[in-house]
Design a protein around this nucleic acid. Structure first.
Lengths: 194, 194
DNA sequence: TCCTAATTTGAGTGATCAATCAAACCATAG
DNA sequence: CTATGGTTTGATTGATCACTCAAATTAGGA
């Protein structure tokens, strides 16, 4: 067997939740994709919600190596690193013909108040993302010799990214992303390239 | 009867889709809230999806009078009008204890590619929203005597708004909204209050 | 008044939902 | 070898899903 059954289920759910969302994905569909029968599924997860939590924990593991590392290795300049991360989402959208945006954002819009643990994990993902981006702004502060609020800027960066992806997926066009990026980039460069 | 049966169904669906989303809301639940039986429901709407489209058309009607007008009547300054609209969403979040964000954004994240008409209507709502905000930036351009790209700025405004709401609902705290607003407002004031 | 068409009633359709369960299977330890 | 416990099979559960339909009711025009 190439992978643990449990991990196979997690990765099947990961892609299906990403493509179609949590509610629109049936447990039977996950089982089929993971090549697992019902009893085996419920041997590892006591509910669909518990699987969702496992998926979100897995995303937390992937945050740095998959989302951040490619850009951080490519660029040294911290501001370029940030825009490199954003460019990664852009590439993903183009390559999948506007199907795959931010998996965490997708799940965030579907998770209800009562799903406490899932919401905590979504926040942990967002906070982790913002922390890495804030570190970039902080490093840029040091290099340029300024003192902008790195956490607020990281918060704005995530906000712009999530807001853009929402519109891109709705419009099935990259324009909202690019058009939002123009003034956003202008603002950031105004702060860091004086 | 206080209202048309059809309109009663639309308004029941409107609030339920807003609170719980499209997939999480059952047709039976809509019927119950609208005090309508199943046959009556399907007399007016041939499917749940057709109802969704009617709801989105209704939102298009409400866009100016409900979303824009309150702020436009309160303020004369076009930039204040924009932040007044954003403040409206903020108030809504606070008053509903972080349950009701942007109904269009909520639906946008759930509608699939195949639901062509629904997606068109979501885009029409977004485009209408951006047009009103772009008009404000355009008016500000004239008053201040500058020539910033009003459509790109309106696009960024919607982006920041939608991205903020996503985080607010996930975190169940107004902080992401306020923290994103700080640098966003700083940027806009940098452009228009020289 | 009667006719017609729009509307409403409410039981009922099959499909799919998440979840359960006993039995079988298999790997490992003693 | 046997015993044990983790794992898998796959049929099956009741609930809920969106949706249908014939019959009853209502409303409006001739």
């Amino acid at each position: 067997m190439d992978k643990d059954t449990k991990q196979r289920i997690i990765e099947a759910a990961q892609i299906l939740f990403w493509e179609k969302g949590y509610h629109a994905t049936g447990v039977a569909e996950i089982q089929k994709r993971a090549e697992v029968h019902s009893g085996s599924f419920y041997h590892f997860f006591k509910s669909k919600e518990e699987l969702l939590e496992a998926v979100l924990e897995f995303y937390l593991q992937l945050l740095y190596p998959v989302v951040m590392a490619p850009s951080f290795e490519k660029y040294d300049d911290p501001i370029e690193r940030i825009f490199g991360v954003l460019a990664g989402y852009r590439t993903q959208l183009i390559e999948t013909n506007f199907t795959l945006g931010c998996p965490i954002g997708k799940l965030a819009s579907e998770v209800e108040k009562e799903q406490v643990r899932a919401r905590q994990l979504i926040n942990a993902n967002f906070e982790g993302w913002k922390k890495h981006i804030a570190d970039c702004f902080e490093e840029a502060n040091i290099r340029i010799g300024v003192a902008h609020n790195s956490m607020n800027l990281a918060n704005l960066t995530l906000t712009v990214m999530e807001g853009s992806l929402l519109q891109v997926l709705a419009e099935q066009s990259i324009a909202p992303f690019d058009n939002a990026m123009i003034p956003f980039r202008e603002y950031i460069e105004m702060l860091y390239k004086p």
